[in-house]
Design a protein around this nucleic acid. Structure first.
Lengths: 160, 160
DNA sequence: CTGAATCCGTTTTGATACTG
DNA sequence: CAGTATCAAAACGGATTCAG
């Protein structure tokens, strides 16, 4: 049972011929591209999943709030609603987003089985690290808001 | 000037109970929270919009590719499809994402009205700056993939 | 209080065909 | 080549109801 990698690669190259050679593209585009699509190529890959979380409607707000401390479910919900004046987060969504963040190890959920029950949410160390990066990102974007708005109005004008 | 965090939090709870005072929450949660929801509170705010772009299905791939140079429409499409082996990007989606990135000033579109037409896409300086931050983020996430996967299997186990 | 379950509308995305 | 138009599918999000 031999495992001829090189032959395998030639095989791939042949199969995909001139066109779709992934490895070739990786070499051309660098490892960043590879990280985006490596290992599992669907959107469950951690890189894509986390980035999707950071871009969704509620998770960023939740993370920003949890960065400042530990909160109970209802407390957290109130704060999220205030930050997102646009609209209130539904219980359903809050639960879903928290579960997703917990699943990826960014948030811990501590249940105290009293009556009535009490559940506390907080960032894990991993979540805190990520949040630091997020803060840089948010900081950068908000310091370039003017550029972005300018680009937008330029774009709209040219559209007429 | 003392800095009674616990008291501050209790204070928040009280204020919120009566009337949801946004300014109070901003002070408690810091300017990051404010940046997330300031100025325009819907999702058109640059901060939210850009973060949504970075989290969507195609934009990150497009940005990673454009970071390496200037590409024509069809070229770009081919590369995106290779990176996203899961599925091919539709022309429609490619066009929509490129327009959105262009609108926010991250991408320039240069049309040469020959026959057949030629359109080139590239990052703007703003887009390149953002891409640097993105790379840090991608780098961090992919270097913590193991932690995330571990958290996931822990989560699944506990679920049974 | 902290959710889970269900139903349903909206938004986002995709497949396909067509065009200057 | 570089799109647009149209229709269909799927994901997302929300309101409501119920439960431990």
């Amino acid at each position: 049972m031999n495992f001829d990698l090189e032959g395998k690669r030639r095989n791939i190259e042949k199969t995909l011929a001139q066109r779709e050679d992934r490895e070739e593209v990786y070499r051309a585009l660098g490892d960043l591209a590879e990280r985006m699509s490596r290992s599992r190529h669907d959107r469950d890959a951690p890189v894509r999943e986390i980035m999707a979380r950071l871009g969704d409607r509620w998770s960023p707000l939740i993370l920003v709030i949890l960065e400042t401390g530990t909160y109970r479910y209802a407390e957290l919900r109130r704060l999220v609603c205030i930050l997102a004046s646009e609209q209130n987060i539904s219980q359903r969504m809050l639960t879903l987003r928290l579960r997703a963040l917990e699943r990826d190890g960014l948030v811990v959920r501590t249940v105290t089985p009293t009556v009535p029950p009490r559940t506390d949410y907080a960032l894990t160390p991993l979540g805190q690290e990520l949040q630091k990066l997020m803060n840089m990102l948010i900081g950068w974007i908000s310091s370039h808001e003017a550029d972005i708005e300018a680009a937008r109005s330029r774009f709209e004008r040219q559209d007429d």
